[in-house]
Design a binder for these strands. Structure first.
Lengths: 341, 341
DNA sequence: CTGAAAGCGCTTACAG
DNA sequence: CTGAAAGCGCTTACAG
């Protein structure tokens, strides 16, 4: 049972394909009578335009692509949800790919999407990505590209981010304001900009408040699958190395929850002995004991904003206007809970 | 800068489009010399076939669609990851849609995917879905459809599932084997088959062991966004209603973790006072204190298997063979941890 | 070994 | 108000 085509409708009604096509699209130069006839028949035959033919004619697929480092991830899955919800409203479908934090895969996937001729691409970079040719390639094809969360400043495209440095600063400032004197930091990997920025925010807050910066108080986490265990491990190391630390700003909630678990086990009181601030506001952070003070990172909203920006550029290009590139910074707030005083 | 077409290559080399097309696809009836010439030029011009044209010609999009009730979900995001990983290997891209547990949305999304002419569809049903016309429609169009996890037995398509009843039985049996005498159940919503099956497995284990079945020991959770809080709430209700319960089989880990949190707070000792078995083996389940005994529900593997089955049917259809419909049941295992004796 | 031609199913500028 | 025709960029059966 093959799908119905315009041709079949035209033949059945004894009119031309042109008229059928125009009638269905409500062109003003088709008579009401013909329109009604055509629409009725289309309805009863359950006519659906062949998307492949429409794509070819219009050079549009009404499909966009997303690449994230990891799908099974509270933050990214929220961003994806935000993107899809918005895209659906505008009639766009969304192809999802996962780079696994690998530059090579990311590059391959950009090409896959380009080959499929998606209308636009949304991406959050892999930690391993230090070369950006695959991305400038997208831009030079005049295909809308929007980066979110993990971005590359050099690439000339729109971006949706939070101010990681400022957020980290306020997290650290909160520890200082509540009386912490010696504050450690569990940071993310060395490469991605946001883990660098969070570190810099931490450092700046210390210096601005007249605290010394002590590199031995900074611990690195890969923040991959083992985040929780890294939190436990670093908490344990910290207790061995520095018995005077009374506050920690931790790069991400999952690691913070690992640390809390370890401290609970060891009988370290939170926040009395050590106060903790996390980052991301994962839903489990309000569930654990003690509940975690953290920075709210608005994933769903970031996804929505990223799609909206992409959509604007899509429309601009369609009208042959040049697209206006923009960086949107979303607000973050400190959510105070029981892990700080 | 428009993409390069076959025509341009043909004109540049002074040969026909036909020959260029055949050369690139390594047809045996093109001379080696011509092939080399064509391939070289294609390479330097960075020729990529226009996917829209290829789709139209071949009536294939090399794209499949997935519909899940919820993307931000440990189990479903793992299934999605499994599907994408497998699809990518076979050259398929994956469009993702979320039904939000709504039948209406699910129906609309099936139509969206059909309109886009995806090559096949993978779906896990919304809790609200009780009418299956939108799904039999897919089957009757001879488009491959594979259901996973939340399925409808009536629909004639392939399915990938676990044996919920058996898994629930073994969870309950484990509570009995470790000495529990009065066992409660926190179940999921009334409609979806797997929450029914888990309940039935629980009930059967009780009866088989000569325990009475007491409906007042069964608590219902919606298992939506508020799962964690539902766990806390039901735990609290249970303590009020029945002080003699010494074991609970809980429909899903998130709810179980909520319950554990509540019991910890109230000073109820786990497993001494109340033993708990969850369902799904979420990664946080090994992290909390006490760690949760649970049924491992293999999401990633389920995604892989589901795509593999879809792929088989895709190939069968291409060869005009009729597709063989199949139900694949994955093994689940009981993961013993500290929440049971 | 090469190429002219038909066709996939639409859209739209143009003629009448 | 209606329709013939060109064209989007491929693939492939067929002729030479």
């Amino acid at each position: 049972m093959k799908p119905v085509t315009l041709k079949q409708i035209a033949e059945t009604l004894g009119i031309s394909i042109t008229t059928v096509s125009k009638a269905l699209k409500d062109y003003p130069d088709v008579s009401k009578k013909t329109k009604a006839l055509v629409k009725d028949l289309a309805q009863t035959l359950n006519y659906k335009p062949n998307a492949f033919a429409v794509n070819l004619r219009t050079s549009e697929s009404k499909t966009i692509g997303i690449i994230v480092p990891e799908i099974v991830h509270h933050f990214f899955s929220n961003v994806i949800k935000g993107i899809i919800s918005q895209a659906e409203k505008k009639g766009y479908l969304v192809i999802i790919l996962q780079s696994n934090e690998s530059y090579e895969l990311e590059k391959k996937q950009i090409n896959l999407l380009l080959d499929k001729r998606v209308d636009g691409i949304l991406i959050s970079l892999a930690n391993g990505t230090a070369d950006f040719k695959h991305l400038t390639e997208v831009v030079s094809q005049d295909k809308p590209l929007v980066m979110f969360d993990k971005i590359a400043k050099i690439v000339k495209c729109s971006k949706v981010v939070i101010d990681d440095r400022k957020a980290a600063y306020s997290a650290t400032q909160h520890l200082i304001d509540t009386g912490c004197k010696r504050i450690a930091h569990f940071r993310g990997p060395l490469l991605p900009q946001n883990s660098i920025d969070r570190f810099l925010g931490y450092k700046k807050a210390l210096l601005d408040n007249g605290f010394p910066y002590d590199p031995s108080l900074v611990y690195i986490c890969e923040c991959g699958d083992m985040s929780f265990d890294e939190g436990k491990l670093n908490a344990s190391k910290l207790l061995n190395d520095h018995d005077d630390v009374d506050g920690i700003f931790i790069n991400t909630d999952m690691v913070a929850i690992g640390a809390i678990t370890e401290f609970n086990k060891r009988g370290v009181r939170i926040p009395e002995d050590i106060a903790i601030v996390g980052f991301s506001n994962w839903f489990m952070s309000s569930a654990i004991t003690p509940s975690l003070t953290t920075i709210n990172q608005p994933g769903f909203e970031m996804g929505k904003k990223a799609f909206k920006q992409l959509y604007k550029e899509l429309k601009a290009i369609k009208k042959n206007k040049s697209k206006a590139i923009k960086t949107i910074t979303l607000e973050t707030i400190l959510v105070k809970r029981d892990s700080t005083k």
